[in-house]
């Protein structure tokens, strides 16, 4: 905060005293935003917990209709993309704007792959009739509760997919800025906070994956 040396002030907004204050504000801002996001998903996790406790058997049945392998591959994709984003932040810190851009673009492409696989899964659910409401076709013992599982599944993964979509666009744009040499080891907050956001998207999936895909396997 008391850094008075004449560092490069490219990218310093007028209302900040110095780069350090600006960087610290951006980082804290993203953390606070992520807390908001956690509470946003938190409401859904609460609903999930309430109904899973009430209808455990139905949850197992619903989980059996998940495509275990697609879910697992998607988990691996997201984890790897998170690693790439971490590498991108490192690259920009050491001044390698081009490497940073490449990492971000690959991570963004992996996000697209995640969405594509998710789309395949959704399609399969539609074909199978595992969609609550009028399109429901599954013959299961307690259809209301299983529909509830799928409803929560669609809302949670849908909200997550929305976040992935935003993240894909964000990483692509930040990558583009990086490729044009906009960042420096002094000014790289956008890369850093976008990275935080992507890790958050990843972490949410780390919770969704076992909660939705692995219940059936726990029973076996």
């Amino acid at each position: 905060m008391h850094d008075s040396s004449a560092v490069a002030t490219h990218g310093l907004r007028h209302h900040f005293a110095d780069m350090e204050q600006q960087r610290a504000s951006a980082t804290l801002g993203m953390w606070v935003f992520l807390v908001t996001e956690i509470m946003f998903f938190g409401g859904l996790f609460a609903a999930y917990l309430v109904y899973r406790t009430a209808h455990y058997d139905a949850w197992v049945i619903g989980s059996e209709h998940m495509n275990f392998w697609l879910g697992t591959i998607n988990t691996v994709i997201l984890l790897c993309s998170s690693l790439l984003v971490a590498l991108a932040v490192h690259a920009v810190q050491v001044g390698q704007n081009r490497m940073c851009a490449i990492y971000l673009w690959i991570a963004s492409a992996m996000g697209v792959a995640f969405l594509a696989l998710k789309g395949i899964e959704y399609h399969a659910h539609f074909v199978e009739g595992a969609v609550p409401g009028a399109l429901w076709k599954l013959a299961v013992p307690d259809p209301r509760a299983v529909q509830m599982f799928f409803y929560i599944y669609f809302v949670m993964t849908g909200l997550h997919a929305l976040h992935v979509t935003i993240g894909v666009a964000l990483l692509a744009v930040i990558g583009w800025h990086a490729a044009r040499g906009r960042y420096s080891p002094v000014y790289y907050s956008p890369v850093h906070v976008s990275g935080l956001y992507w890790h958050f998207v990843d972490v949410v999936w780390i919770f969704l994956y076992p909660l939705l895909y692995l219940i059936a396997h726990k029973k076996a």
Binding site: V32, V35, T36, M39, F40, G42, G43, V155
Partner: peptide, 13 residues
């Protein structure tokens, strides 16, 4: 920051 998202998701549902 902590409360508003919860009512947002409840009303969305």
């Amino acid at each position: 920051v902590l409360g508003t998202p919860v009512v947002a998701i409840a009303l969305t549902l």
